[in-house]
């Protein structure tokens, strides 16, 4: 199983390490042709405007959409969550427009308001130390979206089919559970494909 981490900008190395520890082969990807033989993709934290712009300039948008159509799981953290959202507050056009959610950017405030907190995350586990950095939250989620975690009533983790999103940074701790959950999603998608 080979999972790519989109490496245009942001916290790439940390995701690669955790995915490897969770039993996957992980590679940093920058080019459209590198996306072809992947079984899943992580879009990391970073600056969503920067990553979104570089994705468009290097024609990565369509290959990522194709991965999604083929049923390959995609996991977005923080900036990555903004990139996969169907609606982003303050933007006329979404980036990838995949997940049926409305995301608010820098929703908890500026860097001095950034925080960590222990969360109980459905399907993943309790007491997960989550690091929020100028983080977004999900303001509204469509009927097909399963909410996995909230902070003060704000949605900060969710899943819709093969799409997984977190407003925080599971890659900044040593806790493998979130990445292990995504690796399992990728495994299941590969089994489904074989059975088709």
């Amino acid at each position: 199983m080979k999972i790519g981490v989109l490496a245009l900008q942001g916290a790439v190395r940390e995701h690669v390490q955790l995915l490897e520890q969770a039993g996957a082969t992980a590679v940093a990807v920058k080019r459209a042709e590198q996306l072809r033989d992947l079984d899943g993709l992580v879009i990391p934290g970073g600056e969503s405007t920067t990553i979104g712009k570089l994705m468009r300039e290097y024609q990565l948008t369509e290959p990522v959409l194709k991965m999604h159509r083929e049923g390959k799981p995609i996991f977005g953290t923080c900036a990555g969550l903004i990139l996969i959202a169907k609606r982003v507050e303050g933007l006329d056009e979404p980036h990838l427009g995949l997940m049926d959610i409305t995301v608010k950017r820098n929703a908890f405030g500026r860097q001095r308001e950034s925080f960590e907190a222990a969360l109980n995350i459905e399907e993943i586990g309790d007491n997960f130390q989550a690091v929020f950095i100028r983080a977004p939250y999900i303001e509204q989620a469509g009927p097909g979206v399963k909410v996995l975690a909230t902070v003060d009533g704000k949605i900060v983790a969710a899943r819709e089919g093969t799409l997984l999103g977190a407003a925080f940074h599971p890659e900044l701790t040593d806790d493998l559970r979130f990445h292990a959950y995504f690796v399992k999603m990728v495994q299941e998608s590969m089994v489904t494909k074989v059975n088709l």
Binding site: Q9, T50, R112, E116, F132, I133, H169
Partner: peptide, 17 residues
Amino acid sequence: TGTDRVKRGMAEMQKGG
């Protein structure tokens, strides 16, 4: 707020930029 992880993490998000 203001933990090492939160402060250093902010810089981690700037990598490659």
